[in-house]
Design a binder for these strands. Structure first.
Lengths: 304, 304
DNA sequence: TTGATTCATGACTGAAAAGTCATATAAGTT
DNA sequence: AACTTATATGACTTTTCAGTCATGAATCAA
């Protein structure tokens, strides 16, 4: 009679084990999930084995001296993650707390697009708790697919073509200089050579585009520092110690009355998009119209 | 970091407890779920209390000397039921077994519509295990909404108007008589008075319609027995001991070479419909086209 | 080859939860 | 009031599972 008698007729499955498995999947391997704790290491290893024998399938595979999650493992992890979030949301809702909606994006996007608009986001989504999680652009897509986050904001060019998205508009780049540093010297190109500059550390997507642009324009700026993110660069600009080329949305942080933002038309704009996990939306009781409202709220061009 | 740390940080939730709760919800109250087992009774009572304190909400409410499931309890049960089925399906799939698809319907529908077409149903849905569960018409809708069954087949007039449905066609009624009982005597009405008849026990939806029809036609058949279901009636007809008015689809069981089926046009036909639980379909990896194929397979008029 | 890293496993302990039984409470029934 | 039915609870025992520790096995790198 009872449908799930079968599920619990064999031992080997428990919420704790499922949670352990989730931790390992999220860390990628046991050692990383165990954080050097020998106890956890052995626990994880055993619990995964127990789950494997319960489900009758390999959830992990040995690769060299570490393990990898199999496709089936990822499938299961996805399921468990969603189920746990459902239970947690139910619990939160019962405690009178609002449902959590998680956003994932790069730091600069969090600082300059999301943080300033938390109230509007909450208005668009109803009475929810907004969580902003910082991650690298390349991780955003996977995190949305996994259900670890509900919404992601990233550059369109970082997405595979077939991914469903909502356009938030294009963001260009501008040279930000403190106004008291002296008048801007004619063209942007000239200004770039004139002011001490901070740049991004090499490696990122923007970094190479920037270098290409500099050599194309035959410019040799005076670089006083290389930093890990746009937000760190903005902080330096705010002190007035250097200028920087930043996304135009940095104007949120760099007050136009105190900082001059000179757009650089010849640096190609990048299209920003919003991606969403439909399953999580359902879980949070949100519908497509909520995403529509969110899309409007997050448009990046209206603010410039 | 771990999203679900919070879920397991408090004790009080376990798969066993969730399963117990599910059993109680399905039975409707503790006593019925415990089946007279005092141990289970106390277990259920305690486990539900533990879950209530875990989620911080009343899952049951006392009504008289028994308990009722609250709305929140039903909501949670729905969630748990679906989660358990997901885990079970995953396990079954890993064991090389096919996914289960559950149908719910009245006995006569199972016997005369579903059972004869199991192969076609499996062809329409892919390589699945079909389960046919007998239930009263009025329970079918709730069972689909609950996710206890994936598909339900029932009379359209038993459904609230707003329920989404797929039409399977109309089923009329016919007088079934064994051919060796003698020639059918002119009109159907005359035949009904001529042959010894079996009827349905009073109470059902068809019963009252049938009685109304009889008095309208001023007919007084010779009733030798009243039975609980059409299938039981058909069994009597098959012995040749009596005739009966049955849904036309009873021809599946009553071979036209041996039994005469005389349609009764003046007894209104009833529309049969298929209803589906979209969430379960997703779980089973089925899409709308599968339901379309199923709808075609289950059409009730093509076979007459 | 030696050592470090990563996972697996055996042999335990301890805690949590399930299971058991008797009995209390509470609401209906006769 | 006496009895029945349904649920709750206290006081356990037993089982399961998590947690701990030591150590083995496999892989890789210096």
């Amino acid at each position: 009679m009872n449908q799930s008698a079968h599920l619990l007729s064999t031992s080997g499955l428990s919420l704790e084990r499922m949670n352990s498995f989730l931790q390992v999947v999220e860390a990628g391997n046991i050692a990383k999930a165990a954080l050097g704790d020998a106890t956890k290491q052995s626990q994880f290893s055993r619990q995964i084995k127990e789950m494997e024998s319960f489900f009758g399938v390999a959830l992990t595979r040995r690769v060299g001296r570490r393990i990898e999650i199999t496709d089936e493992g990822h499938h299961l992890a996805l399921m468990i993650r969603r189920q746990f979030r459902e239970l947690e949301d139910f619990r939160a809702a019962m405690a009178g707390k609002s449902v959590q909606v998680r956003f994932g994006a790069q730091g600069s996007i969090i600082d300059w697009i999301l943080t300033p608009r938390i109230d509007e986001i909450r208005k668009a989504l109803g009475d929810v708790t907004v969580e902003l999680e910082q991650m690298r652009t390349l991780d955003v897509m996977r995190a949305v697919a996994d259900g670890r986050i509900d919404f992601g904001i990233l550059r369109a060019d970082a997405l595979p073509k077939e991914t469903k998205r909502r356009k938030l508009g294009n963001v260009g780049y501008a040279l930000f200089v403190a106004k008291n540093t002296g008048k801007s010297a004619g063209s942007v190109e000239q200004a770039i050579q004139k002011f001490p500059l901070v740049e991004l550390l090499p490696g990122g997507q923007f970094g190479s585009r920037w270098q290409a642009w500099l050599s194309e324009k035959k410019l040799h700026p005076h670089v006083i520092a290389r930093l890990a993110s746009f937000t760190q660069m903005a902080r330096v600009v705010r002190t007035g110690k250097a200028a920087a080329v930043l996304p135009e949305i940095a104007s949120v942080e760099l007050d136009p009355r105190r900082f001059h933002a000179e757009p650089i038309a010849s640096l190609p704009k990048r299209a920003m998009v919003l991606i969403a996990n439909t399953r999580s939306l359902e879980r949070a009781g949100l519908d497509a119209s909520a995403t529509n409202r969110l899309e409007k709220v997050l448009g990046v061009e209206k603010m410039l």
